[in-house]
């Protein structure tokens, strides 16, 4: 199904001063009616559903935003299952429960934010994804925290890898506001798994840089936990 009203992409190439000024004026919509019509005139295609699944077109900022929305859906669903498990309070210390409840809230906020942001800018959010956590033992501390570490490190590397595709500087800064929180999560989870650790082995390279992973590789890694087919184009 096609939800696009128009089919004109955002201007390509590096951000120019005039474009930045434009976005400064336009802002970043979230349901502001006048903005919605303005943005719609400039942009449209985004994550769309086909018979085969979800397509994320990275030549368009909505494709990148929907990519982030997909990953936040995955994380939010995972932590909702963690904190909703009957064995939650018996599996984790009170401090760990506090951390995991915070992570559940933060990821759900990120998920809801991206959906609202895409709608507010007159884009079309991808549908709710179907997740599958059969591989996780929610009554086992190591299984839950190990999975959390995978998701958080994957999220950090995904945002780091996607930043270069974001054309609108406002969206880029917003992604930055979220990725550092994902990195805080990743650090805390690493520290719960091993004293003094801030990352899984190999996550930070010898130059002190976190990973930046291309979207296709991220989605390949995430596909073990997502039933829907997700295809990335132009990245």
């Amino acid at each position: 199904m096609s939800q696009s009203l128009t089919d004109r992409p955002l201007p390509a190439g590096p951000a120019s001063a005039s474009r930045r000024d434009f976005f400064k004026r336009v802002g970043f919509g979230l349901g502001v009616a006048t903005l919605a019509s303005t943005v719609a005139a400039c942009d449209s295609t985004d994550g769309e559903m086909t018979d085969d699944g979800v397509v994320l077109d990275f030549s368009n900022d909505f494709g990148v935003l929907n990519y982030a929305y997909a990953l936040e859906q995955l994380e939010a669903a995972f932590y909702a299952t963690v904190v909703g498990s009957a064995s939650f309070s018996s599996t984790f210390t009170s401090d760990e429960q506090s951390v995991l409840q915070d992570l559940a809230a933060h990821e759900a906020i990120h998920r809801d934010f991206f959906r609202a942001a895409i709608l507010g800018a007159n884009g079309t959010p991808i549908p709710g994804l179907t997740t599958n956590f059969d591989a996780v033992d929610f009554g086992d501390r190591a299984s839950v925290l190990g999975t959390a570490q995978v998701f958080e490190d994957l999220g950090v590397s995904a945002y780091n890898g996607a930043g270069r595709y974001i054309q609108n500087p406002t969206y880029l800064t917003l992604a930055g506001k979220i990725v550092s929180v994902e990195a805080r999560h990743a650090s805390v989870v690493a520290g719960l798994l091993e004293d003094n650790a801030i990352a899984a082995d190999g996550q930070i390279n010898s130059s002190g840089l976190d990973k930046a992973t291309p979207p296709g590789m991220v989605l390949s890694a995430a596909s073990a936990f997502i039933e829907d087919e997700i295809e990335v184009r132009n990245a």
């Binding site: 951390v99 950090v156 930055g176 805080r184 520290g191 719960l192 801030i198 840089l209 976190d210």
Partner: peptide, 24 residues
């Protein structure tokens, strides 16, 4: 961005040393 997220990892690890509740 790759440095930025490492700084955020540092920030969280340092913050955990004195956070209340512990670990935040």
């Amino acid at each position: 961005l790759q440095i930025h997220s490492v700084e955020a990892r540092h920030a969280a690890a340092i913050r955990r040393l004195s956070a209340s509740p512990a670990g935040q």
